[in-house]
């Protein structure tokens, strides 16, 4: 068996074992909840088996997958941004502003322009992180995080100030004609993920990106611009995450509301999905679906009195156990 195939097979074995193990650990962790391990297991399994859960997960899949597939690209270059959260938010803000305040009608062209504009604003926000890294040596983990909080501040300012509508801190909902259906939203994100995958596999930037992470000096020596690669990656990452935000607004949110310090969380979940998907955009899409399903379970759990943040722990468990089992399995495969 050649080395590549062997690696894939052992990786797949690790993935399956990791997923199974994470289900077991999750069940055991159910003991922390008011349902107890057994009761929680029942709900977990029946939710995972139900088609409805998967369909109701799709609206969340959209921003998570846009974040995850774009972050996969960034992480491949060793650019550990966690800024997708802020980019999704600002993408939504940008799309809202353009449609509601500037274009003011909902033609297909207007919606397309709004989505692209969301991407553009996301790209600028991402590019800022890349620029700070390249220009001033600012750690991208921290600068992107601070920018996420600033994005929260921007949303909170808008919904409690200039864009506020009525007594609550929120904007007016978009009129019915300004929007897109779920299938279109999913399609947009899947196409974006696919394009990212093609970008990595078939363009020279894919080679540049991997070299920058794995052997920076080799990349430099043979003509790859480190700074330009990081900037390109940061822009594309922000662009796709921003599009995710725009689509999220047009399909699910329809209006902006004030946000807590935890943010919306889609960008953060996207981080987990990016790693879970093996730092490949297509893998990240698949992982995002899984993460979105867990996320959509939170309303079911709330019905039973379980804290909705419990799903965050479950998501972490999945990532950690898949990480553990794939590492062990691939290591065994190399022996």
């Amino acid at each position: 068996m050649n080395a590549r195939l062997r690696g894939l097979v052992y990786g797949a074995i690790g993935l399956v074992l990791g997923l199974l193990f994470s289900v077991l650990v999750s069940m055991a962790l159910g003991a922390f909840t008011s349902l107890g391990a057994l009761g929680f297991s029942k709900i977990l399994l029946s939710s995972l088996m139900s088609k409805d859960t998967w369909i109701s997960a799709l609206p969340y899949f959209v921003p998570i997958a846009a974040s995850a597939s774009s972050l996969a690209l960034a992480y491949r270059a060793g650019f550990i941004t966690i800024g997708a959260e802020g980019q999704v938010m600002l993408g939504a803000v940008a799309a809202y502003w353009l449609l509601y305040y500037v274009i003011e009608h909902g033609s297909i062209a207007a919606i397309m322009v709004a989505i692209l504009f969301a991407g553009l604003v996301g790209a600028l926000y991402g590019g800022l992180v890349g620029g700070l890294r390249v220009g001033l040596g600012v750690n991208e983990i921290l600068s992107s995080l601070m920018l996420n909080y600033i994005a929260i501040g921007i949303v909170n300012y808008l919904v409690a100030g200039p864009w506020q509508q009525g007594g609550y801190t929120r904007t007016a909902p978009l009129p019915a004609n300004m929007g897109i259906g779920l299938s279109v939203a999913v399609l947009v994100v899947v196409i974006a993920g696919l394009l990212l995958e093609l970008f990595i596999v078939f363009t020279k930037y894919g080679v540049a990106i991997d070299s920058v992470r794995l052997a920076r000096k080799a990349a430099q020596t043979y003509g790859v611009g480190i700074a330009s690669t990081i900037i390109i990656v940061a822009l594309i990452q922000g662009f796709v995450a921003g599009i995710g935000g725009g689509v999220l607004l047009l399909q699910l949110l329809r209006q902006l509301r004030s946000v807590g310090l935890g943010g919306w969380g889609y960008g953060y979940m996207g981080i987990l999905a990016a790693w879970l998907g093996g730092l490949r955009p297509l893998g990240a899409l698949a992982a995002s679906l899984l993460i979105a399903v867990l996320y959509s379970m939170r309303s079911t759990l709330q019905l039973y009195g379980v804290s909705d943040s419990f799903v965050l722990a479950l998501e972490a468990i999945i990532v950690l156990s898949v990480l553990a089992f794939t590492t062990l399995s691939i290591r065994r495969g190399e022996k």
Binding site: S307, A316, V319, L320
Partner: peptide
């Protein structure tokens, strides 16, 4: 396990928040 420090640390964030909240 020799796992990546970034992904492990980020997972710890989620695990801690999730369990802590419950």
């Amino acid at each position: 396990l020799g796992a990546d420090q970034a992904v492990t640390g980020l997972s710890i964030v989620f695990l801690g928040i999730g369990l802590g909240d419950v």
